[in-house]
Design a protein around this nucleic acid. Structure first.
Length: 488
RNA sequence: GUCCCCAUCGUCUAGCGGUCAGGACAGCGGGUUUUCAUCCCGCCAACAGGGGUCCGAUUCCCCUUGGGGAUACCA
């Protein structure tokens, strides 16, 4: 069997962790089985739709680096892949259901529905959902209403009794009492657009989708879809409900937990490899004893049986760790390229500047193992581009010493820096300072802390001697002199 | 409220009847070191509870509890 799976997002928001996780699992499953991964745009909600979200979708996946085999932008054998371009289809199938007495016209307006809901809320234990008011309208009444041009929706007739069962790859068979299924959900809205329920069933069938992998929040609509497949006489794709992704508080991951949109992580300086690697392991495991996987390795190792049923909490700290791992795997040249836009954004350098490119390349070894996210580079590297602002005098003072000592140490450092030192040679530079510390009977740390602050503007910084090598002798001397003047 | 799904360290997870319950992140302690970080070593830390089944349950079944999800002309 040729496996065909789809990711079917609705362009009503930016791509977020949960959606991308679903897409990734679908992708891994398809590729591990030699199957096809399809993108379908479910743009049937016209009130929340925006072009910007479609653009965000494409941007996000280009950036992430895994892509669909068929989709709106690249076409495919069952095009179109955008639901708004398939409109006549849905009406046709909705009407077919009516003809089969599996669906019906409903003329209830929002006002009546609103009152109904309100009444239900008040009498807490009572019925929930639509009261099936129009389910048994006479044929005449329907014809009259239609003739008058009354707005209507088409609703699915859920059987009042009996049960419906669907098969889930992960959960096994799940049985529902029909009485517990959402009472007669809308299939075709009054604006002529289908709801998710109708469109997803029609398209999954027409697009020959074999497996539907989606989050567990969709479980309650599975039996309802099953009823439609049965009505049409179609085979239902095999379902696989994925565990949900939760925030630290145990609720569905959302904005209030922090960044959730992929572009936010991108802007914060996360690497796609890290995001993909981390996200894939939410509710899924690959192999014991290893944490880092390329996407190809994940394809190789992916097994449905290794999916988890329980929801997973999204851990920002662990993602950060993955990011650090991938940053450290980069070559200096690669990392310099990655960091560049963040430096430009921070106003530290221009985009077109070969001298700056060279400086960045030199600086990468100093920051590589210190970066958690790429955006950290801006604050970390600023002192290499320009003299840092003078920190408070106290910053210069080594532990358990005073300002006089700091000043003295700086003078000693200045003397060393002004010697005939080879600033391109780390070892001799380091040796010179060590020797000098011994000569004057000072602790190396006491000698170097004021120097570090003079050079980098902070007590915590990238390596000192490497920094001085990049800055050069003249700049080093200037910064020491400035600090001496400042402290005097 | 009702229905459905779920349940191993704080978090992500390994485990598919017999294990000192393993790994990773975080935390803590130590080492390397001119700061920070990286790296290395160590420590802390879990089978929700109660019944069964079985010679033997983390593992299989049931109940309780807990958590989550769904109850829209949103997906």
């Amino acid at each position: 069997m040729n496996i065909r799976v789809r990711y079917a997002p609705s362009p009503t928001g930016n791509q977020h962790i949960g959606g991308v996780r679903t897409a990734l699992i679908n992708y891994l499953f398809a590729k591990s089985m030699g199957g096809t991964f399809i993108l379908r745009l479910e743009d049937t909600d016209r009130t929340r739709y925006s072009d910007g979200y479609v653009k965000n979708l494409y941007d996000t996946f280009h950036w992430l680096g895994f892509y669909w085999d068929e989709g709106p932008d690249i076409g495919g054998p069952v095009a179109p892949y955008v639901q708004s371009e398939r409109l006549p289809l849905y009406r046709q199938y909705a009407e077919q259901l009516i003809a089969m007495d599996k669906a019906y016209y409903c003329f209830c307006d929002e006002e009546r529905l609103g009152q109904l809901r309100k009444a239900q809320d008040e009498q807490k234990s009572g019925e929930q959902g639509y009261d099936r008011h129009c389910r048994n309208l006479s044929r005449d009444e329907v014809t009259r209403n239609l003739g008058e041009g009354k707005p209507y929706v088409i609703r699915l007739k859920i059987p009042l009794e009996g049960t419906t069962t669907f098969a889930d790859l992960l959960l096994g068979d799940v049985e529902w009492k029909n009485a517990d299924i959402s009472p007669d959900p809308v299939l075709l809205k009054s604006d002529g657009f289908p709801t998710y329920h109708l469109a997803n069933v029609v398209d999954d069938h027409l697009m020959n989708i074999t497996h539907v992998m989606r989050a567990q929040e969709w479980i309650p609509s599975a039996p309802l879809h099953r009823i439609m497949y049965d009505a049409f006489g179609w085979e239902q794709p095999l379902l696989c409900h994925l565990p949900m992704v939760l925030g630290q508080d145990g609720h569905k991951l959302s904005k209030r937990h922090g960044a959730t949109a992929v572009n936010e992580f991108r802007k914060a300086g996360y690497l796609p490899e890290a995001l993909i690697n981390y996200i894939a392991q939410l509710g899924c495991s690959f192999e014991d004893g290893r944490d880092l996987f390329t996407i190809d390795e994940m394809i190789e190792l992916f097994k449905v049986e290794k999916l988890n049923k329980a929801p997973a909490v999204f851990d920002y700290q662990k993602l950060e760790w993955f990011n650090g791992q991938y940053i450290r795997q980069k070559s200096d040249a690669e990392l310099a390229q990655l960091v560049k836009p963040f430096l430009v954004d921070a106003g530290i350098r221009e985009g077109e500047d070969s001298a700056a490119d060279a400086l960045d390349l030199q600086a990468m070894p100093l920051v590589k193992e210190r970066l958690k996210v790429l955006s950290d580079a801006a604050a970390m590297m600023a002192y290499l581009y320009r003299k840092p602002a003078m920190p408070a005098a106290a910053e210069f003072i080594p532990k358990k010493r005073d300002q006089q000592t700091a000043l003295q140490m700086l003078r000693e450092c200045l003397a060393v820096a002004m010697e005939d030192l080879d600033f391109s040679n780390l070892e001799t530079m380091e040796e010179a300072f060590k020797r000098h510390a011994e000569q004057i009977g000072a602790k190396l740390g006491d000698l170097l802390m004021p120097l570090r602050v003079a050079i980098t503007g902070a007590r915590v910084s990238p390596p000192l001697f490497e920094s001085m090598r990049i800055l050069g002798q003249q700049e080093t001397i200037e910064r020491i002199k400035d600090s001496i003047a400042y402290l005097s």
